[in-house]
Amino acid sequence: DVAEQLTPVLLDSPREESLQLVSELKDSSGSCAVDVSTVWWEAAGCRELRVVTASESAVSLWKPLAPNCWGKVYTWRLEEVPVIQIVPLPNTCNLVCVALGELEIGEIRLLFYSSETDSFKHSLLKTGNIKAVVGLKDWRLVSSSRTMQEQQVEMVLLSETGGSKDRQTLMPPEETVTAFAEVEGMREALVGTTAGNSVVVWNLKTGQLLRKMHIGYSYPASICHRAYSDSGLLFVVLSHPHAKESESCGSLAFRVVAFNPCTGRSTGVTFSCLPPGRAGRQYLEGDVWDTAGAAVLMSGAVAVWDLLRGQCTAVLPPDPIGHWALARWATSGARLLAGRRDGTVHLYRY
């Protein structure tokens, strides 16, 4: 650990310049931060991007008060079950989704403002042994849950009042789904990765499981982050949290793989790596927005890549006060949130 702390970030070209610090949020509650995200919020006819921070027992909504100044609007107390993560809901408004549980997700809750009672509330959306969850555009949420006998994959259409308008069951694959990603530009398509290292494709409208395509054995335990359909191919952004350092590439963070859904064949398109020379596991966790990837590294730095070029474009060195622990793209894009465990969040323009 000491060696990790003292090792500088060995990158020649990428620097902080492509990330411009916009503002800092400081949480004085003293609780350990577990996640950070953004949400569109409309109040009194004004729609603005707000920041959401989560500790194990509370989720706070932050509002921009003035340039470089943020204030807490409200804190939801969730003290019975620990918060594990915030689930971003792209292009929704006035709704925050959180996953809670002990080691694994046991419940999903919606946090919202009720104009009927003029108060902030939260409601239980789903319980179970939940393995993966993703928020999709247009107020949709997909999750997979597992019982001893079977796996259930379900899409829920969310309502502004913290409930569900509709539910659609998706055909489960035999293997456990480990992650979901929406397909850019194809509203009814959804991809997932499985514990058997396959990519699966669903039709969200019909619930059909359209295709299962094996990724290969070179990069086990792949996690999907994003997908794009173009020219008859399905491009999937994968991360490989358990990938070993290789001589040719160094430490791999993200990979873009092109799949032909008709044949199930695939080929690697780009690899986003750190330069070789630093042994050990680099990648702790990451997030993808459009074609930009961000990851927190073991050194406490945050690295950003252009995934289409496979190039590292920016690095936030470990902060002398504390290592970066969280890196998330804002739902609006072009903004990166970097968070420390002490609750401090830096908002960068990218």
Partner: peptide
């Protein structure tokens, strides 16, 4: 990549797979 690597490509793969897959 070339077409030979990935096999024949269809721009309407989503519709075609939806028509073929079990309901």
């Amino acid at each position: 990549c070339s077409e030979s690597d990935l096999g024949p490509i269809s721009l309407s793969w989503f519709e075609e797979l939806s028509a073929e897959a079990p309901p």
